[in-house]
Simulated scan of single mutants.
Amino acid sequence: MHPGMHPIDDDLVRRLIAGQFPQWAGLTVARLASGGTVNAMYRLGGDLVVRLPLVQGGVGDVALERTWLPRLAPRLPVPIPEVLAAGRPAEGYPWPWSVYRWLAGEHPEAGALSAPDLLAEDLAAFVAAMRGITLPGAPPAHRGGPLASLDAETRRAIEELRGLPQEGVDCDAALAVWDEALRAPEGDGPPVWLHADLMPGNLLVTGGRLTSVIDFGCLGAGDPACDLFPAWNLLPPGARDVFRAALGVDDATWIRGRGRTLSQALIALPYYRRTNPAMAHNARHVIRAVLEEG
């Protein structure tokens, strides 16, 4: 998916575990299928999971999660990853890595939600809890800065998609939505705590209800519109309204959130269309959902 990806396989993970955490050396190791783009995930026995950066760009997430997850966990309404062990570079693997407690559940799938309105309420409760955190020293959230900082990359993606007519993207309509988002007033309140990557692959559900949120590598403080992603990348229109009402989102923040979600999808689709089916599929869904909303 990216240049500079480090090869990772079962044997490497076994050697890393045996060398640094011998108490787990006899546990089974199995690669987990994932739509993630910067980390490899390996199930370790029945109760653990190993997460290793695939690229240099994911290395900073390791320290970020080790620092902040223990502080955030008591303040959130659902479980989040718990770091149980901090791995070091070894065996030819160049970066730090972590062992987490296994969190059970399934990733929700847009168009196949069993309880969309209830899930919308659960997601709103999580986002509201994040926003209500007052811990000092929050780093800037990835993608959490001014919307205009995404403008050049978003416009490049739209032009790239014009050259991919097989994707069927109405690029003029996408550009109109993006321009509307840029015109929306920026929030006048202080930055808020954000997960900043609420993709379906970072959510776990059981019986249709939210049970865990994972992958906090983008966390930090920023524009509250950043955590509105599920409105378009997961929820159907009726549940989208439930989500918005539960959070009390004003028009300007909603328009910025829609633009941010569309921007991410527009950038992801041409980049991942041949390398990451899950990301490309969700990007297509987002583009349709946003443009159908108008």
Rank of each mutant, 00 (worst) to 15 (best):
A124G: 15
G132A: 15
T154R: 01
E121W: 11
E121C: 10
R156S: 12
A148F: 06
A110C: 11
L113F: 01
I133G: 02
L147F: 06
R156I: 07
A124M: 11
A120M: 09
M130W: 03
I158M: 12
A110N: 09
A128V: 00
L147W: 03
D170W: 10
A112V: 02
I133T: 05
G145C: 06
D170M: 14
L164T: 13
L119C: 02
P116H: 05
L118H: 14
A124C: 07
L135R: 07
A138W: 02
D122W: 03
E121S: 15
L118C: 15
Q166V: 15
A157K: 05
A115T: 11
D117T: 11
E121D: 14
I158K: 01
A173K: 04
R143K: 12
A138L: 07
G144H: 04
A125G: 15
G144I: 04
G145V: 00
R162L: 03
P165D: 10
R162D: 00
E153G: 13
L113N: 02
E153H: 14
G111F: 06
L161G: 03
R143L: 15
E159Y: 00
L164K: 12
P165V: 06
G168T: 10
S114G: 13
E167T: 00
S114F: 07
M130G: 04
A148I: 03
T154A: 04
P165G: 10
S149L: 13
V127Q: 02
A173Y: 05
G163Q: 12
A125Q: 12
H142E: 13
I158V: 13
T134K: 12
E153L: 09
V169H: 06
E160I: 00
R131T: 08
L119R: 06
E159A: 04
A112D: 10
L175R: 14
A124W: 01
D151V: 03
T134V: 15
A138S: 13
R155M: 00
G145S: 07
G111R: 07
D117S: 14
